[in-house]
């Protein structure tokens, strides 16, 4: 029997075994390829998505464990102010090189700012060390997270 999953606000019926990782359901069945495969064992963070707002490594999250939870992927990161601010900061500071890990970096960063609007360097280290970048964009990621945090902070104050 097909499983129903809620991805980016739309229901999808996917006919796969319950032990299938969400990553492959998103990429191969639903056709959302923004979420990336990097290691398959939760070591690199490239596959990070949000499930009910919690950052999850989709490569080891089985589709059968999700139930009615709401899945958010990089494709709708701009649906909230944090995502928008991060994308802007990423482009302003030219964070990206090859870009393959950046979907996961951005999803982790969005979870970071959602839980901690003013992260310190140590806070950034703790959360973002789960995401590997082989192009070495770490320094710019750090700066971009801070820029986004500042922008969000000041827009909140002015609101």
């Amino acid at each position: 029997m097909p499983t129903q999953i809620n991805v980016n606000g739309a229901m999808h019926s996917v006919d796969v075994d319950d032990d299938t990782p969400l990553l492959w359901v998103l990429r191969d069945v639903v056709g959302l390829t923004g979420t990336k495969f990097g290691c398959g064992v939760a070591l690199c963070g490239a596959c990070t998505v949000h499930i009910d707002g919690v950052p999850r490594r989709s490569c080891i999250t089985t589709v059968g464990s999700i139930g009615n939870a709401s899945i958010r992927t990089i494709e709708t990161l701009d649906a909230n102010p944090i995502g928008k601010a991060l994308q802007k900061a990423w482009l302003d500071l030219e964070v990206v090189q090859c870009g393959y890990c950046q979907s996961g970096q951005l999803m982790s960063a969005a979870a970071l700012l959602a839980g901690n609007p003013k992260p310190s360097d140590a806070d950034i280290d703790t959360v973002m060390s789960g995401n590997i970048c082989r192009c070495g964009t770490y320094g710019r990621i750090r700066s971009a997270i801070k820029q986004a945090a500042n922008q969000l902070g000041s827009s909140q104050e002015s609101a």
Binding site: V41, V54, P55, R56, R57, I60, T61, P119, G130
Partner: peptide, 19 residues
């Protein structure tokens, strides 16, 4: 942490990776 909880990777059951 709230921003990177254990549940980011550790679900309710052991998960096979086939690695």
């Amino acid at each position: 942490t709230k921003e990177l909880p254990c549940t980011s990777c550790h679900g309710p059951h052991n998960t096979a990776t086939l690695g």
